[in-house]
Design a protein around this nucleic acid. Structure first.
Length: 829
RNA sequence: GCCGGAGUGGCGGAAUUGGCAUACGCGAUCGACUCAAAAUCGAUUGCCCUUUAUGGGCUUGAGGGUUCGAGUCCCUCCUCCGGCACCA
């Protein structure tokens, strides 16, 4: 007998799947397409190819592959593609350091990912493989950019943007974490630059409303997106500065507190600020304050316990509800990016305004009573953010503040001093990057014609070769003079190309559509293919993409649907967010030295062990801590299954199991059917792979316990063979090589071509059950009873138990609870 | 501060609907095999008390409640993790 040799069997089956292109599926209308089967699009987030794959990749693709196999064996035609999100900063930073062109490092990494995915035995349709860095792909990224441009959804605007000094590029708001660059950790600063944006804010309401269209997404991911979009309902109210003859609209969610406004604040970046103070006494102080704020980093300005600072403008505005003149200030706690960059300050009911009022000794006027009327009189308990009856608010006094809310807004509207308004935290998506390794933005600038889109037939605008990849405040592309200088497509005159490239999130916002028609040179995709396969039925990836990638892809899908290029509103019907694997309780990192290289484990234990282990560690949506002992435990289990297979092959002949078998043969058959039932249900119930695998372990354990007593009897031998083959069939989605090998040896069939097994209800039930007998809710005995025994019989059996009798001890039974087939509880006094 | 999620043995974790708490795995202990070790196979393994059993008590972050019966439902509190955060 030879031992379990994963190297040999894994190579064998990988060869079969490669030679036969087993996992390739055709599109509708192509040869081999099977219309009788329902479709399933199973997709894991495409990897960013940098170096070698890590354990996060292993887990993601192990989970996704298990789902793909499960669906195939339930009769679905499954498309399960793979590609590479190949543009991006790390390859470029490497190029700056080593001089190696980013394309070469990227291609090398892709080769490594491709090889390892094959070694892991992931069932990928390789005919659909793509890389977002190839001209064949980014041609269509550019094409989509042009469609968005035509719709006014891509626009170039000067705006204050987040700039990373280290990477020398602008960042999307989403890429700034705690005031620092998400990639390199450098504090970002604000700069005013002309940049390309996508109008994702136009879709804010649909991005919120269409959560209803999703079948199953983790609640916390939806919540994160909802918070990110940050929709606030309120009113826009206009305050007038008579001296300067300027109107200042503000956004407020609390129009009910308008009577409590005692001052007015502008953001330091407010465009009217200069005009307001020019030539006044306040001018010098204001200018100095604004300059100081401009020099501060985003992180400093947003610091939690920052003191309120500001400067009076020496101007005032009129409160439209009561005609009162209130003084104006500039202060950095008001942000230009949210609302109108100006606020009415109500210190009695807003903690920030309260702090500012305290620092500048400004009046605080309560206009909403709290729960305690005493407190309302002496102004204790301020600031008070809650609800209550209104006071000091003229004709609204005594009214409930929530009830008066609409009335006040309606009144403002009738006076043309306000209107209902909605504000979002979400900003437009800044897509320009002053970097080399990305898809060039397909636009040229002409002195005569202005901004001109590159015509479709001139796509792709290919990345030029450059010598120096380091950005110098401009894109490295700007140095490629021959490339930058071009002819205007409109007038033929001299023009210059846009030298910025696109954020790589643009590339990954539509790749799931390109998979469906990846070799199409005439169009981004064939409409029929897209309509057939979309939406993605099951999307799998890490929570770290809960906001950025998923929201951008949702936005793209909606925009493309509006262009009548797609007919789905949502790209991903079901989302599974996998948890992160740690080592020694900490996130893996090279600096900490606690990384796990999947390749090493695959080499030592085989891919089946590594894949099954990451699925067994715990519920896949939760994280888990990687331990070598745990890996060995799973390897032991797979070896046990292997040895069982070898023994069964030798000691039994192929024979159908006998459902009428009795004794231990029946016990083992029943266990096999129990495992089928349990595995199937847990698989469907949120991919509880850890318990699916433990059910198969239990089956193998029982086979070991019972096998020696069963070989002699033909029905018994058949039961052991069935149990072993069933274990192979059930473990196949996680350990496809071993599953295939064992199944083929025992049944001569290819397990992936067979339907998922079904549990026989006859073998799931049994003639007797274990009756739990309790006295006063405490377990006192277990009795084997006929499954169908009526209540009276169960009670009699329970009372007859000696152990129970000991606890009854002559006391009165005041209540009898009987749950047929399960339990009897006798309540005594 | 606001919004989510989670607290179960030495560890990772399991427990359909309120009905056997601790499945499965790791670790540990003992035994078989062996000259020996590894591997393998088998047994034991929540805690405490009397070791006389086939004995008793306790146990799911803490406290309270509902119920014949609570890891599961309700209330109060504590801790940890994740997200957002001067967003008007």
């Amino acid at each position: 007998m030879s031992g379990y040799d994963p190297k040999e069997i894994e190579a064998k089956w990988q060869q079969v799947w490669a030679d036969e292109s087993t996992w390739e599926v055709p599109n509708p209308g192509q040869p081999g397409f099977d219309d009788s089967k329902p479709k399933a699009y199973v997709l894991e987030m495409l990897p960013y190819p940098s170096g070698e794959p890590h354990v996060g990749h292993l887990k993601c693709y192990a989970v996704g592959d298990a789902i793909a196999h499960f669906r195939r064996r339930h009769g679905f035609q499954v498309v399960h593609p793979m590609g590479y999100d190949a543009f991006g900063l790390p390859a470029e930073n490497n190029a700056i350091k080593t001089g190696e062109p980013p394309r070469e490092a990227t291609e090398r990494s892709i080769a490594s990912f491709r090889r390892q995915f094959r070694e892991w035995g992931i069932s990928i349709d390789w005919a659909r493989e793509l890389g977002t860095h190839t001209p064949e792909y980014y041609r269509w990224t550019q094409w989509i950019f042009l469609r968005l441009f035509e719709q006014g959804l891509a626009h170039r605007t000067e705006a204050p943007v987040q700039w990373c000094p280290k990477d020398a590029t602008v960042l999307a708001n989403e890429q700034v974490v705690d005031g620092r660059c998400e990639r390199c950790g450098t504090e970002v600063v604000q700069r005013k630059l002309e940049q390309w944006f996508f109008r994702i804010t136009d879709y804010a309401d649909r991005l919120l409303a269409d959560f209803d269209l999703l079948e199953s997404w983790p609640e916390h991911v939806i919540t994160m997106q909802r918070n990110w979009i940050g929709r606030s309902e309120g009113a826009e109210v206009t305050f007038r500065c008579e001296e300067a003859r300027l109107d200042f609209p503000v956004f407020t969610t609390r129009p009910d507190t308008l009577f409590g406004a005692t001052f007015f604040v502008l953001a330091p970046e407010h465009p009217e600020l200069e005009r307001l103070v020019a030539g006044t006494e306040a001018e010098a102080a204001v200018r100095e304050y604004v300059d100081r704020v401009a020099r501060e980093s985003v992180e400093e300005r947003g610091a939690e316990d920052r003191e309120k600072t500001g400067v009076p403008l020496g101007r005032s505005v009129v409160n439209p509800v009561n005609g009162e003149e209130i003084p104006m200030f500039v202060a950095d706690y008001v942000l230009m990016e949210y609302g109108t960059g100006a606020i009415m300050a109500v210190p009695a009911h807003d903690s920030r305004d309260y702090e500012f009022a305290a620092a500048f000794d400004l009046p605080v006027r309560r206009v909403i009573e709290g729960e305690d009327p005493e407190a309302a009189r002496d102004d204790d308990g301020l600031p008070y953010p809650g609800d209550g009856p209104m006071v000091g608010s003229g004709r609204f006094d005594g009214k409930d503040n929530r009830a008066a809310y609409d009335e006040i807004v309606a009144w403002l509207e009738s006076e043309q001093r306000g209107r209902p308004a909605v504000n979002y935290r979400l900003r437009d998506w800044l897509v320009s990057r002053q970097r080399y390794w990305g898809a060039p933005i397909p636009v040229v600038y002409c002195a005569e014609c202005g901004t001109v889109p590159v015509p479709d037939e001139q796509l792709p605008v290919e990345l030029p070769e450059v010598e120096d990849y380091a950005p110098q405040g401009k894109s490295p592309l700007a140095a490629a003079d021959d490339w930058v200088a071009t002819d205007c497509p409109r007038c033929g005159g001299p023009a210059r190309r846009e030298t910025d490239t696109m954020d790589t999130f643009v590339d990954s916002s539509w790749y799931f559509v390109r998979y469906l028609d990846p070799r199409n040179g005439e169009a981004a995709w064939d409409r029929a293919a897209a309509d057939h396969w979309l939406p993605v039925d099951q999307y799998i990836g890490g929570v770290e993409h809960a906001i950025l990638h998923l929201m951008y892809a949702r936005f793209f899908t909606k925009a493309l649907a509006d262009l009548d290029l797609l007919d789905v509103q949502e790209p991903f019907a079901n989302l599974f967010a996998q948890g992160m694997i740690t080592r020694d309780g900490a996130k893996m990192s090279k600096s900490r030295g606690n990384t796990v290289s999947p390749g090493e484990y695959v080499e030592r234990y085989g891919a089946d062990t590594a894949r099954t282990y990451v699925c067994f560690m715990g519920p896949p949506e939760r994280g888990g801590d990687w331990t070598d002992e745990g890996v060995e435990g799973v390897n032991r289990f797979l070896s046990r299954l292997w040895r069982l297979c070898e023994e069964v092959e030798e000691r039994t002949a192929a024979a159908a199991p006998d459902p009428a078998a009795g004794g231990e043969a029946r016990e083992l058959l029943a266990k096999a059917h129990w495992a089928i039932d349990k595995a199937t249900r847990d698989f469907q119930r949120g991919f509880q792979f850890n318990t699916v695998i433990s059910a198969v372990m239990e089956l193998v354990n029982d086979a070991y316990r019972l096998k020696d007593g069963l070989y002699e009897d033909p029905a018994g031998a058949a039961a052991v063979r069935f149990a072993t083959a069933t274990a192979a069939s059930l473990i196949f989605p996680f350990a496809p090589h071993l599953g295939s090998e064992v199944y083929e040896r025992l049944n001569g069939e290819r397990v992936w071509e067979l339907p998922w097994p079904e549990a026989d209800p006859e073998l799931l039930s049994s003639d007797t059950v274990t009756l739990i007998v309790q006295v006063n809710g405490k377990l006192r005995d277990r009795i084997e009873v006929p499954a169908e025994a009526p209540k009276e019989e169960l009670l009699a059996l329970a009372r007859a138990s000696e152990k129970v009798g000991r606890h009854l001890d002559g006391r009165d039974v005041v209540k009898e609870i009987v749950v047929p087939g399960k339990l009897v509880n006798l309540v005594v006094r």
